[in-house]
Amino acid sequence: MIAIIDYKMGNLRSVENALRRLGAEFCVTADPDVITRSSHVILPGVGSADEAMANLHAAGLPPVIRGLRRPVLGICLGMQVLCRDSEEGGFTPCLGLFDAHVRRFTPTPELKVPHMGWNRLGNMESKLLRGLERGASVYFVHSYFAHTCPDTIATTEHGQLFSAALKYENFYGTQFHPEKSGAVGEQILKNFLAL
């Protein structure tokens, strides 16, 4: 059973639909026992990092998530809260699993913010991204990004290289939305469920 963590950060429907299309069994929950017993855990999220961390704390989830030993996938904001901290909302300490800080893109006439649309993955190195073609494209929507670091398992360029995906032990994160990235995204979700 896969647990999708519900911490009141945006709509979970598209993640649920993507898992349903793959024929996976899942539940949507904030119950620490259910989360801990699950084979895989997905931490989605749309919104701001400060609100996301506040909601996780309110639900008593930070120690539960840090203590997980099964595969965990943070998506978009869910990936960002697995990082060390975020400058969104002033300065927000996050869960500290990935050794990266989250900063805002600075818009310029040539650089649109939010970074929205399909962009290429480079420097892919992880089982999570197995089977993807070089330069495969995935769908992004975000204004904040994690810099590249030793935990980076894929990069994307938007004004500068940033972490499109991160991994630390059993924790994975994607800045992009695999559930909205067509066949490429489906492959990534399949890879995650096979971990």
């Binding site: 429907r13 598209s14 639909n17 993507a18 349903r20 299309r21 769908y139 929507v141 939305h177 559930e179 909205k180 990235s181 067509g182 066949a183 995204g185 489906e186």
Partner: peptide, 8 residues
């Protein structure tokens, strides 16, 4: 549509 479409 949300159930059946895998792009935004």
């Amino acid at each position: 549509i949300s159930d059946g479409i895998n792009i935004p």
